[in-house]
Design a protein around this nucleic acid. Structure first.
Lengths: 289, 289
DNA sequence: CGCAAATGTAAGATTATCTAACATATGGAT
DNA sequence: ATCCATATGTTAGATAATCTTACATTTGCG
């Protein structure tokens, strides 16, 4: 295959359209360019090949016999290319964009805004996967992940989205039931944390408290924790933003607030080519910023 | 046919070559560009289609199933295009370049230089047609004409080549046989001119001589004229350059020399696309200049 | 482990391509 | 016939696509 002295493929395309419709002006309209562009392309093609392909007779154009022969070869070839590309593009459009995130982020931040996205990009189908488990983009076949991280530990390639103030949260009653001046004071109170995580012990460690001593931590599914906290079953460590309303109404209190210590970032699978992914990420950033 | 959202054909070409050879670096070499160019084109194509087409596993590349499907469509299409173009280009190369000119120009100017052209462009076949008749480029199917014109009457689109000094020419014997001070003196001498032309009468008219009175003009084929002039059969009107040697050796004399009054120009058929034509014309200009 | 040989990325340079503006040509309407 | 609407043809300069350069990253091999 002699790829090197192939003429400009755009010129071939222009000629093929011209052959189809028999007019520079109309061919230009079809290709969304001016007649002059088509005419220059065709001229360049004639010059590359070394034969006249088009002839003028009056106001009409006609292909020379060489031009007709070339058009006979080009038309099916371009048709085949067009079909092949179209098939893949349709397949691509049918695939929804798969997004994974923690359930609390889905409920508190993403879902309330989602109707705006769907109004602006009605063609994009989102497939949300709220999951406590941190899914792997490649292995679990996800396109985009929205995850929590501390500010100082953003993974590579992540784009920061929403800043969060983390704090220890409990009912005023529970907090009043014991001293809460220093972090160490809290180790005698009951704690609740998400199944499979180690947030509470980490928190004490970061605050210089040795928790090798007794520490009552009950693990439960994330969606049940706030209910239990509200019943004064224990303290938990969470973002003030997720319990904003309860804090405002004094149904909950926040202790040892760490402002903007971390937040949610967006992570996109490497090399994701779909424009829908770019659109969704840009929309997330707009909503966040 | 949806010509408008076809992806960049160059990107498709790059992908097709990549699919062929399985390496950005090699594909770049084949297309005579860097690996980075290929890789950007393929990435742009993935982004246009919205699907990944290529995957890296270690140092090797592999097409995704979508990529394989696309390559299956593209390869025969590009092959067909390539064949169609190649066929026409070969046909074009086989056609010789048809050049018409006056016989004297062929003999005195072109032929002596022709071996230089053929040495430099051995691929170009010239078909020379020396002809007294002024052929029509279109009707007589000629590509290039080399013709005489006065400087002040160059036809449109003509490129001037060689400047000529025109003069009345005759043997010293003939010229000595009568007064030759003023143009009018010459009207009593015998004249020779090319068949079918009117050069002599025109010359007298330009010099303000009324030749409605007797004027002896013998018309004959151009190639016989100089022989007859040498035999003192008459005067003729010609370019000093064509009889340079005879003038130098005083076998002929020139009267009323009009320096640089006209010359030969080259005229190419409108829209001639062959590079051979451009090469020949450039060579003519170089030889002339 | 360090090197060689790939791929990946981004900024800036280079080309190809297009537009705008005007000239020319043609066929039909007045 | 002459004018006008509608084509094509041509060019300089603007715009956009494409490529290169230079560097980073990844991977397999000795």
């Amino acid at each position: 295959m002699d790829w090197r002295d192939l003429p400009s493929l755009n010129a071939l395309k222009a000629f093929c359209v011209l052959a189809d419709c028999g007019s520079y002006t109309r061919a230009g309209a079809i290709l969304n360019v001016t007649h002059a562009a088509v005419q220059q392309q065709v001229k360049a093609l004639e010059s590359h090949i070394g034969l006249r392909l088009v002839e003028r007779s009056g106001r009409k154009l006609a292909l020379t016999s060489d031009g007709q022969q070339l058009a006979r070869d080009l038309e099916p070839a371009f048709w085949q290319i067009s079909q092949g590309v179209r098939t893949l593009m349709q397949a691509s459009r049918r695939q929804p964009l798969r997004v994974t995130m923690s359930p609390v982020f889905a409920v508190k931040w993403l879902m309330p805004r989602l109707s705006d996205f769907q109004a602006r990009y009605p063609d994009v189908t989102l497939l949300l996967n709220p999951s406590g488990r941190k899914l792997d983009l490649e292995k679990d076949d996800m396109d985009i992940a929205l995850r929590y991280a501390r500010r100082d530990a953003l993974p590579d390639g992540a784009e920061f989205l929403v800043s969060l103030d983390l704090a220890v949260v409990g009912t005023p009653e529970l907090i009043a039931s014991a001293p809460t001046k220093r972090p160490a004071d809290l180790q005698d109170l009951p704690w609740l944390e998400e199944l499979g995580t180690n947030e509470v012990a980490d928190w004490f460690e970061r605050h210089g408290v040795d928790v090798s001593a007794s520490l009552t931590v009950t693990q439960m599914p994330g969606n049940l924790i706030m209910e239990a906290v509200m019943r004064s079953d224990g303290l938990t460590y969470t973002a003030c933003q997720w319990v904003e309303e309860a804090l405002r109404e004094n149904r909950l209190q926040a202790l040892f607030v760490e402002p903007q210590i971390g937040g949610f970032y967006v992570h996109c699978r490497a090399g994701e080519p779909r424009s829908a992914a770019r659109q969704f990420i840009a929309w997330l950033q707009e909503q966040a910023g």
